[in-house]
């Protein structure tokens, strides 16, 4: 085999593997989107790919069982969670990155272990606490719970971004006349902006797709999309058409975010490997 043929062979093989991987990820999504346009008669038959598309399912979630409140609630909660996660997580990360104290690295790792433990461990205590405080089914409860769940990875990731800012740059500003707080706000924060964006989006998405806390801590006053979607499984069976329409609507914002800020997210996931400039 000549070099060229060999190279073409190898690269087609690589593309084939990538295509298979992509298909395994995309197929459920494609199926959901396709199903959401199917008429009721064929909705539950996956093998039917040819049909007269209809907007019935979307009409259903627009008026019969409106998706507007869950959509608005989820947007509000996820946005609040992203902002609060950064507001609490970034200063904590700064302290863990910049101040020398005994057991610092152990503390940082301990915080991360919360992210590795199963959420179900926390949901019952949180339920009891919010119940006692009369906060069940409120925005405050679910926003706090999601923020709490996000903080470990927010702190961990932001710490990596902060470490990428040379300490001397901050020190130069101290000597030039800034206080510690001013250095953080006007030197460090602008320099870790890509990190703030990437981590903020991740926090948003994690809140958007979270189900367990939402199921336990909210009901009707606050209605999140994940819970709303699951409610299409009724005693009369799954109302598949409208359900897939609701899912289609609910994956749009996160997907859009992921596309628009793909660059930042990739950088966020490579951590310290990429310098922040």
């Amino acid at each position: 085999m000549s070099m060229d043929v060999k190279r073409i062979f190898i690269s087609s093989l690589v593309y084939l593997v990538i295509a298979l991987l992509l298909m395994s990820i995309m197929l459920p999504i494609v199926w959901i989107v396709v199903t959401s346009f199917k008429p009721e008669s064929v909705a539950k038959i996956p093998s039917v790919w040819v049909f007269e598309p209809t907007l019935d399912n979307y009409r259903y979630i627009a008026s019969i069982k409106p998706i507007w409140k869950p959509l608005a609630d989820t947007l509000l909660v996820a946005t609040s969670v992203a902002i609060l996660s950064l507001a609490f997580g970034t200063p904590a990360a700064y302290a863990l990155a910049r101040y020398e104290f005994r057991g610092r690295d152990d503390l940082a790792f301990w915080i991360l272990t919360f992210w590795m433990s199963p959420p179900v461990v926390f949901v019952i205590p949180l339920f009891l606490m919010f119940d006692r405080m009369g906060l069940l089914d409120t925005y405050i409860a679910i926003v706090l719970a999601h923020t709490l769940g996000n903080l470990p990875f927010v702190i961990w990731l932001m710490r990596e971004y902060i470490r990428d800012v040379p300490r001397e740059v901050e020190e130069a500003a101290l000597i030039d006349g800034y206080s510690d707080a001013q250095v953080f706000a006007r030197i460090t924060l602008p320099l870790i902006k890509p990190g703030l964006v990437a981590v903020g989006i991740l926090a948003f998405i994690f809140s958007w797709i979270e189900f367990l806390f939402a199921l336990v801590l909210t009901t009707f006053n606050v209605r999140l999309l994940t819970v709303e979607v699951s409610s299409y499984w009724t005693i009369a069976g799954v109302i598949l058409g409208p359900m897939t329409a609701a899912i289609t609507i609910s994956i749009i914002p996160a997907t859009l975010f992921a596309f628009i800020l793909q660059k930042h997210i990739v950088r966020g996931l490579t951590l310290g490997a990429v310098k922040g400039e």
Binding site: P166, E171, A172, L174, I175, L191
Partner: peptide, 20 residues
């Protein structure tokens, strides 16, 4: 005393310019 209150100016070995 905090660095900002010492009224000194410093040139760092690795420059430490504000990247932004």
């Amino acid at each position: 005393l905090h660095p900002k209150d010492r009224d000194v100016a410093m040139v760092f070995q690795n420059y430490a310019l504000y990247p932004h």
